[in-house]
Write a protein that binds this DNA or RNA. Sequence first.
DNA 1: AATGTTTTGTTAAACGTTTACTTTTATATT
DNA 2: AATATAAAAGTAAACGTTTAACAAAACATT
Lengths: 335, 335
Amino acid sequence: MIIMITIHDVAKMAGTSTATVSHVINGTRFVSDELQIKVKNAMDELNYKPNMMARGLKGGSMKTIGVVVPDCTNTFFSEIARAIDRCCFSKGYNIILCNTDNDVKQQSSYCDMLISKMVDGVIMISSDNSDDDINKLINASIPVVIADRTVNHKGVDNIIVNNEKGGYDATKYLISLGYTKIACIGGPSFISSSNQRVLGYRKALIESGIEINEDYISHGDFHFAGGIKSVSDFIKLKDRPEAVFATNDMMALGFIDGLKSLKIEVPNDVSVIGFDDIQLARITTPKLTTIAQPLDELALKATTLILNKVEKKDLSISQIILNPILVVRDSCKKK
Amino acid sequence: MIIMITIHDVAKMAGTSTATVSHVINGTRFVSDELQIKVKNAMDELNYKPNMMARGLKGGSMKTIGVVVPDCTNTFFSEIARAIDRCCFSKGYNIILCNTDNDVKQQSSYCDMLISKMVDGVIMISSDNSDDDINKLINASIPVVIADRTVNHKGVDNIIVNNEKGGYDATKYLISLGYTKIACIGGPSFISSSNQRVLGYRKALIESGIEINEDYISHGDFHFAGGIKSVSDFIKLKDRPEAVFATNDMMALGFIDGLKSLKIEVPNDVSVIGFDDIQLARITTPKLTTIAQPLDELALKATTLILNKVEKKDLSISQIILNPILVVRDSCKKK
DNA sequence: AATGTTTTGTTAAACGTTTACTTTTATATT
DNA sequence: AATATAAAAGTAAACGTTTAACAAAACATT
């Protein structure tokens, strides 16, 4: 910068000490009205902006939260990041966004950076992370919230969506429409949230006295292409299902697309329900009936949790489980 | 943190001074091999991580770039942000992501924060920003690159996509398929990039000796819904066009969707070409033929530009214009 | 042997805040 | 009037780096 306006400049102009200026800024000590006005005027006139680095160095905080996601290009994560940013911004914090690509090395490297930069807290939304990174952060006494993933670690908050309930609700909904032959397209088996959704599916069937047909349960890749691919298996099924629960929206949409090219209509010939409620779900034809993850709530809770910890209001460790919500649109109909 | 390892600890352990340790870390002066090894061992053993705040305070840099976008939920921007993060990360920088919602007040507030945090540079991808913010940043001697928007400001780099050429190419492509009755769905008239695309459309028609029918040119809102709405105007047209250039993909997809519900097929009854090449374009049926914006190149150039400036390698101001690319898929066919 | 030069290291002063400690001034109590 | 107490403001030492200025050793040149 050509010239930086410091607290000294303000103090000089207001005819007082840096201590008083600092106290005026932070409201940390009584300062007479008269002097306060002088200081504020000086700040305005000089257009003074506190230097966050100096503040941070002196045991304070830079008011920055690290947000670690696999890939912000994925709307699911970008929507969370957006919501987190909104919350943080409203409380005077900024976010440092980190895209790990689900790569352990990258994630570790990002965490090192975050420690170096002494962020106030970290919200991790990772589908694959070793506890090493968490420990690193905790050891640097940086509060951590793990979102969207179950974790067993005494030192971190954990906030997740009840995937099993989501799968259960989705299946129950199809049953309530009159279906009994219900297939399920699972995700990659190493992703726990996917497995839990399938578990909910099983539970709902059993509870309703419907026998589970293992042939009805397939596994996709959580992507559009995987949904399309499931179609070929689907049509080969001897006793073809009349309804399908796809464990995420992308596969649901791919599946519907695949059916379309075979002139099988949704929901007339087959009812399909998804999971996630990504933006796309509102746009496609038919609009997708799905189980919404409460992203805003998740982001809000995660941010609240981390900021409470940062500001030392609450040091307890919590485990929060959010309930997903059934969103009825046009891809399912009564049998 | 429970306890912070500082450069002093390292110096003590290695039996030398902090200056030498600093020089070893930064390679800023010769240090004998013997001593270097001692220092490096001490750093390893203590698991020392330099404190970026202290480094930044002392005239250095925090290695952080501010990235200002309207909304990272929009795939167009999230893909740019992602690419920028990739570039920055590879050079040891992090990004602070700022979502302005196209709101001038928010953007200004974010910029204040970025100045406070003394980021090394700012990449702004904004469709609406006053020069005030740019000036604020420049005055704080923070380099700025404006991407995806034309700007007249002596102090900032500017990197844009040749929208006119994109519109021209799209239209020329439709002409090359044998069409002469070609409609155009423009965007909001206050968005310059949209207007430039329409300009290219006009140019291509004139150049090919096709008379411009003003009735063929409508205006949408750049969203899916706007595309659907255009359909009603479209079918009312007396001499119905056989091909349509939508000035962005979202409208193109909405338009196709609207046609679909009227049993008008794309590309059999109407050819449609879009602009942007968002991820969705690869997924829908039919897959959308479109004009791709070279996002990766844009991000790479923007990052290179800003980092060169940050590291004082290049202080000149550049204006870069990138060419868009025609991506042929399934939404257009020969007449 | 005396001097200059290069090589290698160290000391200590910044950077802009916050905050514990100290000082000054005003008010109350004896 | 002298002292104690409270209120308001100031002084200066941190925070963890970098780096200019200085110092000492090692070597080369006269």
